[in-house]
Amino acid sequence: MPRERYQDALETLRSDVLEMGEQVDTQLETALEGLSNGAESPAQSVIEGDAAINERYLALETDCVDLFALQQPVAGDLRFVTASFKIITDLERIGDLAVNLARYARTRDRSLDPDVAIDTIGEEARSLLARSLTAYGDEDAAACRRIAADDDGIDALCQRASESVTRDLIERRVEDDPWAVERLLDDVSSVLLTIRDLERAADHAVNIAARTLYMVDGDPELIY
């Protein structure tokens, strides 16, 4: 095939994006582990590991810019590089969200847990991320549409969890101690933000599927 160096660069980009995806998934998994068992070391590992994700993101961004500038991709190649360029941004943001989750893990008050297990939402979000990366690697348009549809399930779980926390807060008797109130508000806020960030991680996974669908079929349906 002609333009071998170019074809190699495209393939390298694909495998590098998938590798970055695995790296981000590991961060998310570790953050969830921290949330689950309250241990300090997973949280610390996620916070320290974010620099590597950011570095990888910048390196891949440079690779995409180089491909645009030096190879001027068109048609399917253009959609592939454009999609990859956007997907690495989503991955980097999931990395940031994993850091947030690790921070919440450090101060998590289990008594405020909603009736929907945070672990369950986290695993659902991770599953969506894994599926969207597989769809990207396999160029699977049908999988992208299924991922977008399945996001509604996570949204519903998150809404139920948030409502549960709020309801619990309303029903709770609070000690007549300003510091206790302050602490409770911080804890509630932290649980609600945990739920929100997991929902956002899932949304970024859906973005990856949306960009992948555009990459495969030229169909921007899910991007909007």
Partner: peptide, 19 residues
């Protein structure tokens, strides 16, 4: 690139960020 901290920065809604 910055980490999203809940008190200082709100993440954009992911779907809109979208011869």
């Amino acid at each position: 690139m910055s980490e999203t901290t809940p008190t200082t920065k709100t993440d954009r809604p992911a779907k809109t960020d979208q011869s």
